[in-house]
């Protein structure tokens, strides 16, 4: 049925797409996600500065205070934790470390993994073999075990956690990138670039990376939620984030004993993780479409609904 694809009108009206912002507005879900994410980033940046003191002030009379009441002030609207600290303030403050660890981990794993993957996919067999076997070594260790050992040796701190978590996530990016590169490098337009005389760097950056990038972005957003939870299990074991510093993952872990009596202790931070992960996914989905010239029209046409 090759005929049908060609039967479409060959020249859509606008040669140049509209701005990114108007394309974002076109996809309402992605727009909401972007707003939510900006809000969370603002929390992360200014939260500790604005609400830092409030979040650590204990009030034993307000222990496990139920949510949705304004009797003790707005900060207790989402309830109080087991030491009577306001949940709302703690959630905002916890955004800082959570986002720092998750973003730091995902970003460095993406950078290293994609970089090595591009090299492994593009270069000869020997280089590829060395890199891939290294990845196998990392993958064959239980990731929690490496984390425990490394953090025990180096001592628990946020940079060390980023390091440890990033190392365990690298193989995922590496393998995906390599697999895609192996396929893309055989495509005709890469051959065309070679014939034109393009050097390796140009071929990788201009011709291969843009094709591989959408897949990587999608994995990265999925990974974001995974890292938040992995961080919480490390914190739960006592080798992750150390109180009084808090993260959403740690809050979930701390709220676990109270699930029967005070569900809100674990629920709100859990909800934050879900919202962040969901927003990232929706936004990355939009980005995949917006960055692909062949799909972009979906965000351009006036009448169509969200796709």
């Amino acid at each position: 049925m090759a005929d049908l694809s060609l039967a479409k009108p060959a020249n859509p009206s606008e040669p140049r797409g509209p701005s990114l912002l108007s394309m974002l507005w076109r996809d309402k879900l992605a727009f909401i996600s972007a707003v939510v994410l900006i809000l969370i980033v603002l929390f992360a940046l200014f939260g500790p500065w604005l609400l830092g003191d409030m979040a650590i002030k204990q009030n034993l009379r307000g222990r496990n205070l139920p949510p949705f009441s304004l009797d003790r002030g707005w900060q207790f609207f989402l309830g109080g934790d087991s030491l009577g600290r306001p949940m709302l303030a703690r959630l905002v403050v916890a955004a800082h470390s959570t986002i720092l660890i998750a973003a730091g981990t995902v970003f460095s794993a993406l950078l290293v993994g994609a970089g090595l993957g591009l090299v492994a996919g593009y270069m000869g067999k020997t280089t590829s073999q060395v890199i891939m076997r290294l990845a196998d070594v990392i993958m064959s260790f239980p990731s929690l075990l490496i984390a425990v050992v490394v953090l025990y040796v180096l001592g628990p701190s946020i940079p060390n956690m980023i390091l440890v978590l990033a190392i365990t996530r690298i193989p995922i990016y590496l393998r995906t990138t390599r697999a895609e590169v192996l396929e893309v490098r055989e495509r005709m337009f890469v051959q065309a670039a070679i014939v034109m005389g393009a050097n390796h760097g140009r071929i990788i950056v201009r011709h291969i990376l843009p094709v591989v990038a959408p897949t990587l972005v999608t994995i990265a957003t999925l990974d974001f939620a995974f890292v938040m939870l992995a961080e919480s299990s490390l914190s739960f074991l006592g080798i992750g984030v150390q109180p009084p510093e808090i993260t959403w993952g740690l809050m979930v872990a701390q709220g676990r004993p109270y699930l029967n009596t005070a569900w809100w202790l674990a629920f709100w931070p859990g909800l934050m993780i879900v919202i962040t992960a969901l927003s990232l996914n929706l936004l990355s989905n939009w980005m995949r479409v917006a960055l692909d010239p062949a799909q972009r029209w979906r965000l351009e046409s006036r009448k169509t609904k969200n796709v």
Binding site: F189, A192, P293
Partner: peptide
Amino acid sequence: RREIQMVFQDPTQSLNPRMS
């Protein structure tokens, strides 16, 4: 390479879809 150019069989594949 500048002096010798090539035109491939399938232009759908020989043009990078992400470049104008």
